[in-house]
Design a protein around this nucleic acid. Structure first.
Lengths: 112, 112
DNA sequence: AATAGTACCTTGTATAACAAGGTACTATGT
DNA sequence: ACATAGTACCTTGTTATACAAGGTACTATT
């Protein structure tokens, strides 16, 4: 029997995708960090993402003025590009947190 | 000064998008319903969607075997296409609900 | 000098959301 | 009887984006 792709797999992926930007801002807000580490954090939170998704997204957030970055040397490899939130980024995160709360409330209502 | 598009608008839209399919299954699970009514329900839950998004999505879910439909007459207009969940749809919804819970837990952890 | 590990980034393809436009049935007003 | 408004369906074309795959480059280890 040929392995059948579960149709919920893509739906689950969709669900996670939508909140990616929010999670990235959340992670960066805790402490300055760099792309490879963000990938690990997202994996820990069961939000699987690949490089080809993350890098363009970070660029977009930076272009939108939400992120800033600075290069720093590393003891164990090439230099790292550390990201931090700008003031606009902090404000955006606050708004998104609000949107998230509303969303959770809406869905909780729908479930019941 | 030209009005500037808030960068969080698109991010918020993204966030909502991801969970659209989940919400649609949730809404249909409560009682059989049709597209125009689903649109209203989503608006009530602050999940703005347009027809061009909903119709292809319903078709996809149906093609995936999660939805079934039947035409029924209406007293106040053209016939309506009522959707219901198939057994596969019910199972998918159960899985998505689980995924949703995990997601909420992950993000709650990130926020703290 | 070669290999492994870490870290960055880009390109091409497929999917999907949205805006806009289109069809058709029913009820209502004149 | 005809036009208009309301409801409900659906499609097409454009744009955005997620992912897979591949590529560059620095450091440490053997």
């Amino acid at each position: 029997m040929a392995p059948k792709e579960s149709s919920t797999n893509t739906t689950k992926a969709q669900m996670r995708k939508g909140i990616l930007e929010f999670c990235i801002l959340l992670i960066i807000s805790r402490d300055r960090t760099y792309a490879s580490e963000i990938l690990l954090e997202l994996k820990k939170a069961d939000l699987l993402v690949v490089e080809g998704t993350l890098y363009p997204l970070l660029s977009r957030l930076r272009a939108a003025g939400l992120l800033d970055h600075s290069w720093e040397e590393s003891k164990s490899g090439p230099p790292r590009k550390y990201y931090t939130l700008t003031n606009a980024g902090k404000q955006a995160l606050a708004e998104l947190t609000e949107t998230w709360s509303t969303l959770v409330a809406s869905i909780t209502t729908l479930i019941k």
